[in-house]
Amino acid sequence: MRPVIPYVVAALLFGAGVYGVLRRRNAVLVLMAVELMLNAVNLILVTADTTVRATLPHGGQVFALFVIVLAAAEVGVGLAIVLQLYRLRSSVAVDTVRLDAAPASELDEPRMVAHER
């Protein structure tokens, strides 16, 4: 068995995931691309089980299981956020999400002037 094959497959999947995260505008599609990246990592972990002789056998597979669980949790929370976003804006385009928006309670206060004379 040549481990380079699954490794390269995992690398290409990861690249596709990155591309998807950056390219996609729809939040659900972004989540899907994230799933692709997670799976690429899982593939690397499982493949590493065959190439790396660790003290504890099957460590990579155990980690893969953990990652799957984490992915399940992530997709659950992520979808909840997506739905909330949709409820607020009736759109799931990530373009409209501003990272610097102040919390609602501080919106009334004037913004601090950066340079005072």
């Binding site: 990530v94 999400v97 990272l99 950066a114």
Partner: peptide, 23 residues
């Protein structure tokens, strides 16, 4: 101050550009 303004504007990125820059 101007450089700060420019950098601040730059930092006020939307999610996509932030993600792009991060990656």
């Amino acid at each position: 101050a101007d450089a700060g303004d420019v950098l601040a504007a730059w930092h006020r990125a939307g999610l996509p550009r932030a993600a792009t820059a991060l990656l």
